[in-house]
């Protein structure tokens, strides 16, 4: 888990998301799916983002490529990537070139991210031509190497259509296409969703290995806390469009400070032991329409809510390398009993 990334730190770019707000146009007006998110991805690390459906994590991921789809719109903030500048100011050709070349994106349900009518190899060549790769033979060689690295027969895969590959193979092809142009920032949106356990484990191992080999800065979006625990260095927890807690993965999971994070961890069923130990978080995640406009977004489901939660939105407070946005965690941090957290 603790990767020796020092050798790569010089190469890997850092990513700083500042005050990012993304709104979606709805009949009820523009509603924020991501609101005021500050998140720094340290160079050469894997940052995991977890949250329930609708917490804004996929929207956050798309923001890194300035690719929020209508009716969504990035309303405010900046996404600074070293060597690229603020992605949100990029337009047209500049933006297109940055996508794929500097920021690789592994699509949510990457199993459907391939053109069904073209072989993988031809799509690879389209990608190379789009980014003015002169040495297309070299590109094919790199692709084969990457595929071999992920335990596949490169030549055979490049000669295949998507329907001739299994889900896990397509996912690896998606990862190959995100990496083959040597992108140093890689965003993986739900990379293991809809895969069986064995394939999940393989994909996670591959992500970890390739990340270290290539000195990448990686963002992994998932709703699976277990998956994130396996690959990430740091963990950001999203709820209702906010990052409610962020810190090193072992600390956040081992000593969660935000009541939502604590609830998430309690909800994980264990493979061994009593299944009833897993407790589901009461209530439902908010949707764009039900998100409270003032106060804490989590208060409806929170067992530690206080009067102040109704009126004031908690600020992100940074303490010894961890940020938490919670009035209760803020005030009672020292009072919280440790046994409750483990």
């Amino acid at each position: 888990m603790t990767a020796d990334t020092t050798a790569h730190d010089i190469e890997a770019p850092g990513v700083r998301i500042r005050d990012l707000t993304v709104v979606y146009k709805t009949p009820a007006g523009e509603l924020p799916a991501v609101r005021g998110v500050d998140l720094a991805l340290a160079p050469g690390t894997i940052t995991g983002v977890v949250g329930e459906s609708g917490s804004g994590k996929s929207t956050l991921a798309l923001s890194l490529l300035n690719a929020v789809q209508p009716p969504g719109r990035i309303a405010a903030g900046s996404v600074e990537i070293d060597g690229l500048g603020d992605v949100l100011t990029l337009r047209g050709e500049d933006l297109r070139r940055a996508r794929g070349r500097q920021v690789g994106y592994v699509f949510q349900a990457a199993q459907n991210s391939l053109n069904p009518l073209k072989t993988i190899g031809k799509q690879l060549l389209d990608l190379g031509r789009s980014h003015d790769v002169e040495d297309l033979r070299g590109l094919v060689r790199d692709a084969k190497d990457l595929l071999a690295r992920m335990g596949m027969d490169g030549a055979r895969v490049l000669d295949s259509y998507q329907h001739e590959l299994s889900g896990g193979m397509r996912q690896r092809v998606g990862i190959m296409l995100a990496l083959v142009l040597n992108a140093k920032v890689v965003v993986l949106d739900e990379p293991t969703t809809a895969l069986d356990m064995i394939t999940q484990a393989t994909i996670l191992r591959i992500i970890r290995e390739v990340h270290e080999e290539r000195a990448l800065t990686t963002l992994v979006i998932t709703h699976d806390v277990g998956a994130v625990a396996e690959v990430a260095d740091s963990l950001a927890v999203m709820y209702g469009g906010r990052v409610v807690e962020h810190g090193p993965v072992t600390e956040v999971l081992g000593d969660a400070r935000h009541p939502y994070t604590q609830g998430l961890i309690r909800a994980i069923p264990r493979l061994s032991g009593d299944l009833s130990l897993a407790r589901a978080l009461p209530g439902r995640p908010p949707t764009l329409g039900t998100l409270p406009t003032q106060g804490c977004v989590f208060r409806e489901r929170c067992e530690r809510r206080m009067d102040v939660c109704e009126t004031d939105e908690p600020m992100s407070v940074n303490r010894d390398g961890r940020t938490v946005a919670c009035h209760a965690a803020d005030r009672h941090l020292t009072l919280v009993k440790r046994k409750e957290l483990v």
């Binding site: 690719a67 789809q69 297109r96 996508r99 794929g100 994106y105 699509f107 990457a110 389209d126």
Partner: peptide
């Protein structure tokens, strides 16, 4: 999904259009 994926990979508009 594959159309958005092609755009996110930075494929030229011509390629995306052909897909």
């Amino acid at each position: 999904d594959f159309i958005l994926a092609a755009e996110l990979r930075g494929l030229r508009r011509g390629f995306v259009f052909r897909y």
